[in-house]
Design a protein around this nucleic acid. Structure first.
Lengths: 214, 214
DNA sequence: GGATGCATAACAAGCGTTCGGTACGTAAGC
DNA sequence: GCTTACGTACCGAACGCTTGTTATGCATCC
């Protein structure tokens, strides 16, 4: 076999693929060196060649999770304000198989993260970053008059993330109860309820409809 | 040592206590027979005497989690409608150390639950039950005029659960960012935004204040 | 004395990790 | 232009440890 000292990164990518596969159907609790090695038809010795310890592999798995989350295909931001917020939250929901796998792995990682102080703060930082990404668009929405002038963008970001991730968890456990349209409708209703009533006539009962036009 | 053939149930309770302790600071990933035995100063043989297999112990742990959730001290329901919904959701949030431990264990169980089909449907059923508990009070709120007449209580229950559990997760990872008052304020704002504007004068910006009087 | 309650110790399986050995590619020596 | 030397990539087996589980034995009670 060729040592080919250039494709070291390519090999690590193969490992990533195997790790992802194992994670997707056994979770972090089922992430074992032998399982990963078997998933790529290799030996555990080869694994250790690229990741000297299991902890390194776990760290890599979490990095991979973050990277794949950051690099996933995303909706274009249609317009400033709430419409962008809506697009960003839709990008989080498990609407496709890929999104479902990613979310499933994400939730699965919480057991580990809660048990390790370092991983706990890592996860907390990720949440902080996610809220920070959302905040400017909430500020824009407020400045556009889509939200009450007194609205606190930071707290609103936390609320939006809470709602979305809570919906993710329920949808993961009961996909039949939360198909694509239900998730989208719920998100739209949530956004409509935090938005100001629109000036063009619609009062609260049809706010859920009007928000979809953002 | 006394065989004392009456306190078999008492002994199982001791085991429960040890299981709880292990779960609380190592999660389901750290739930091992020896860890539980050590936590109660006993042997693994004694454990097997009460729980013939590890799966039995895991099942017991999940039952225990559900039981302690059902039997936790709860707020009185102050008045019909949204006020009761608020009380029920406040009872979920990690506002006390006990609540935090329970929620932490709950989240930790998701890794296992997602990896096992049987446990997945168990968890889905639990969510269905939780929403069902919430629904009648949302219906009452709607009938009282606190919610739009067109509101769907079932979907609202799902939204409320989503928001609350999403907030739980963020609070578990970052207790400093989500102390007691912040959690309560966020919940109140959420409820206020789904509620109809109150007829006694308050418009949207202070809805967050008015809801607290429910 | 037989049944119950439990500790002790051993078990096989699986874990993360280590290690010797092999195949390959590159670079240097003459 | 062979040969030698060396570093990289990887396998396969083994290590020591922990896991869940089982077997043995000794108390204690009825």
């Amino acid at each position: 076999m060729p040592p080919a000292p250039g494709d070291r990164e390519a090999r690590r990518k193969d490992v990533s693929e195997a790790v992802w596969h194992v994670l997707a159907d056994r979770g972090f609790g089922g992430l074992t060196l032998r399982a990963v090695a078997a998933a790529m038809g290799a030996s555990t010795g080869m694994l250790m060649h690229y990741f000297p310890t299991k902890r390194a592999l776990i760290t890599h798995a979490l990095d991979l999770l973050e990277k794949r989350t950051a690099e996933r295909p995303r909706r274009a931001h249609p317009a400033a304000g709430l419409a962008t917020v809506r697009a960003m939250l839709l990008d989080i929901l498990p609407l496709t198989p890929d999104d479902t796998a990613r979310n499933r792995i994400w939730v699965s990682s919480w057991d580990l993260s809660l048990a390790d102080d370092g991983l706990t703060t890592d996860q907390a930082d990720r949440y902080t970053r996610l809220r920070s990404t959302l905040r400017p668009h909430l500020e824009a929405a407020r400045d556009l008059g889509e939200l009450p002038a007194a609205a606190d963008p930071d707290q609103l970001a936390a609320s939006a993330v809470a709602f979305t991730h809570g919906l993710v968890v329920q949808a993961l456990f009961d996909p039949g109860r939360f198909p694509r349209d239900v998730q989208i409708t719920m998100l739209d209703d949530f956004l409509a309820s935090t938005a100001l009533p629109r000036s063009d006539g619609g009062s609260r009962p049809d706010a859920g409809i009007s928000v979809r036009s953002y």
